[in-house]
């Protein structure tokens, strides 16, 4: 009996600090978004008194469907393109010699550690009207001298793919590394073409990695804000930009939180799906409680 209560105290000692912190600074703030979406805006930029439906009705702004739709298609296209590029890369890394593999993996992880803002800024220079890429393309007669490479949705998409690539390559590699490549040989011995073996044996074999790579790319993409802000123009705004605009320019926090609530709903569905799958994978639930001491 005494032992159990001591264990409880110990569990509490280890659990309470982070549990309380994350409840206070993560869970409650997230719930507050939904509450403040029903508050009126005060003139001085703070949150008004009382409750109202009006903030939610402001979501009917005629510009919003277009922006929400753009957010969705840019995120989905980015996810699709990133995954398509990352699958062969993961395949290659999993199959090459160990020394080369560590080197390529290191090069893939390195951008993780460098500043996100700097990497996006680097693209602004590459795509700049006087920049190197533009000059090369004009020289090759691929674009007219007056074409603008920056400030368009395609530029946003390109830079989104650029920043998300490592996030797709790593989970796919982790899955490919566990894949038994003799299965592909077997399929080819049985008459499948190399492409067929890749498509019908390798791809199903890395399904878990595919799902987590998709979510690792899709969910942050929905929340993109800096990329459309730096390399996109007015015609490439995403939900994140409108949230920032409502927060910093219009000082209308309730409107910002109504939009944030829409964004949460966009990400919640894939998130719940992921957590559900994750639990089964780790075997956290079925494992019997193994307590020390």
């Amino acid at each position: 009996m005494k032992r159990t209560s001591r264990n409880t105290i110990r569990e509490g000692f280890l659990t309470v600090p982070s549990f309380a912190w994350l409840t206070l600074f993560f869970l409650i703030p997230t719930l507050i978004i939904f509450a403040i979406a029903f508050k009126p805006a005060a003139i001085d930029g703070s949150i008004g008194e009382g409750w109202t439906w009006r903030t939610l009705l402001s979501l009917k702004n005629p510009n919003y469907p277009e922006i929400i739709w753009r957010t969705i298609w840019l995120s989905l296209t980015c996810t699709f393109a990133t995954i398509c590029i990352s699958i062969p890369v993961a395949y290659y890394i999993a199959r090459c010699s160990e020394k080369l593999r560590n080197f390529v993996l290191f090069l893939t992880i390195l951008p993780f550690w460098t500043s996100f803002l700097i990497r996006i800024f680097a693209w602004k220079e590459v795509l700049h009207p006087d920049g190197f890429l533009k000059q090369a393309l004009v020289w090759l007669h691929l674009v007219a001298p007056d074409t603008l490479l920056l400030y368009r949705p395609e530029a946003v998409l390109l830079v989104m793919i650029y920043t998300e690539l490592p996030f797709a390559i790593l989970p796919l590699y982790a899955a490919a590394e566990k894949f038994d490549f003799t299965l592909m040989e077997a399929a080819m011995d049985l008459g499948a073409s190399r492409l067929r073996a890749f498509w019908s044996v390798f791809i199903p074999g890395i399904k878990a990695g595919l799902v987590s790579a998709c979510l690792m790319v899709l969910i942050p993409s929905f929340g993109s804000y800096v990329i459309p802000d730096v390399v996109g123009g007015i015609g490439s705004q995403m939900i994140g930009n409108v949230i920032a605009q409502k927060t910093f320019t219009d000082r209308n926090l309730p409107a910002a939180s109504a939009l944030a609530a829409v964004l949460i709903l966009c990400t919640l569905l894939p998130l719940l799906y992921f957590l559900k799958g994750k639990k089964g994978e780790d075997g956290r639930e079925p494992k019997p409680a193994k307590e020390v001491v």
């Binding site: 978004i33 942050p220 929340g223 994140g240 949230i243 944030a260 998130l271």
Partner: peptide
């Protein structure tokens, strides 16, 4: 998993 902008605005 939550996009950064949501963490930012919620805080």
């Amino acid at each position: 998993i939550v996009p950064e902008i949501l963490t930012g605005i919620s805080l």
